[in-house]
């Protein structure tokens, strides 16, 4: 009996996901709700990936949106170049029908590119710590944004578009809410991957670095290797979120990956609490919904949201969840799922 009970939430979630896809397939939920759900998914990936570095490793990375930009641009460029019809030759490099299968691979390639960009932060982090590392991340964010601004083949500051055509092409072949499916799938996959990584013996080295780097090194944790893995993993996942973000909106410009976007990520991580994965997921959901609910306020939205956060910080100085998971607060939940 226990065996089945442990899968309750998994099965329930699966049914919910299927139901959502069916509803979206037959246009029972409107596009606005769909897009909000997709933004929630993107933000979950963004927040949880940032929580590897900022939450579990205890470093202060302020330029996470830069890696999101790398992923967004690389995957958008790939999908547009590969699957849209070239004006001169009149045909695309790969047949558009292949885009259905290759889409997740393109997103992952974007993630890998972002992971390589993560080296920009990972290598300095061997020698640098704390606030000095924070500055390096800010500088990297600025560098990526200004580099994109100066690249004319991706449109410079005007931005880059054409991803919608690829998505429409996919929908033309077989009608299915692809983006919704892939965003949620990638979000679940990311949370699962991070959970596995953090709880593994190897991944516990990251938490050891947070608690005491020198002691961790004495205890035979290869701190440099650990940092390299953590930064590249984190920025790679941010790249995946960027790729999805670009394809959901269908338009990217460097301005949308500025420090402000990084700040949003920081808010989601620290609102959750440092080192709480389920907290990051919950705060990503709450934050995105809050953003959408307050949209009618227009400019006052960005006055009200920081104010709310300042007040939340005053009452919960360790974040909503602290460093505990949801199952620590509700131990009975453990009966219903086994997330490993």
């Amino acid at each position: 009996m226990g065996k089945y009970q442990q899968k309750t939430i998994m099965i329930g979630g699966g049914i919910l996901f299927g139901l959502l896809l069916i509803l979206a397939q037959f246009k029972m939920i409107d596009l606005y709700v769909q897009s909000v759900i997709m933004f929630i998914g993107v933000n979950i990936i963004f927040a949880t990936s940032l929580s590897i570095v900022n939450g579990y490793m205890g470093e202060f990375s302020v330029g996470h949106a830069g890696f999101m930009a790398v992923g967004a641009y690389v995957s958008s460029l790939l999908s547009v170049i590969l699957f849209t019809v070239d004006k001169e030759t009149g045909m695309s490099i790969l047949p558009p029908s292949m885009s259905i299968y290759l889409f997740p691979i393109i997103i992952i390639v974007g993630g890998i590119a972002a992971g390589i960009a993560g080296l920009l932060v990972a290598i300095p982090s061997f020698k640098t710590r704390d606030d000095y590392l924070a500055i390096i991340t800010i500088a990297v964010n600025f560098i990526i944004i200004t580099a994109l601004n100066n690249m004319d083949f991706v449109g410079g500051s005007r931005g880059y578009m054409g991803m919608k055509k690829v998505i429409y092409g996919m929908e033309g072949i077989f009608k299915f809410p692809y983006m919704l499916f892939w965003v949620i799938t990638f979000a679940i996959f990311t949370v699962f991957l991070i959970r596995r990584f953090i709880t593994s013996t190897f991944g516990k080295g990251i938490i050891a670095i947070k608690q005491d780097e020198v002691a961790a090194e004495i205890m035979s944790v290869d701190t440099n290797h650990m940092k390299l893995v953590a930064f590249m993993f984190s920025s790679g996942l941010a790249g995946i979120s960027g790729g999805l973000f670009a394809h959901v909106i269908g338009y990217v410009n460097p301005g949308s990956f500025s420090i402000l976007k990084s700040t949003e990520g920081l808010v989601m991580v620290y609102l959750a609490g440092m080192g709480s994965l389920s907290g990051s997921v919950i705060s990503a959901i709450l934050f995105t919904i809050l953003l959408e609910l307050l949209r009618p306020l227009q400019i006052f939205k960005w006055v009200l949201i920081p104010l709310i956060l300042i007040i939340v910080m005053q009452f919960r100085p360790e974040g909503l969840m602290g460093d505990k998971e949801l199952s620590d607060y509700f131990p009975k939940l453990k009966k219903f799922y086994k997330f490993k």
Binding site: N54, F60, T263, L266, V267, Y270, M274, I299, F300, W302, V303, I305, P306, L307, L309, I310, M313, P317, E318, G319
Partner: peptide, 20 residues
């Protein structure tokens, strides 16, 4: 006795409030 970084995040938020 909040973690140092929470004060930093609060500072970021104060900046946003002032700007907007």
């Amino acid at each position: 006795g909040a973690h140092r970084l929470y004060v930093v995040i609060t500072a970021l938020m104060v900046g946003l409030v002032l700007e907007n």
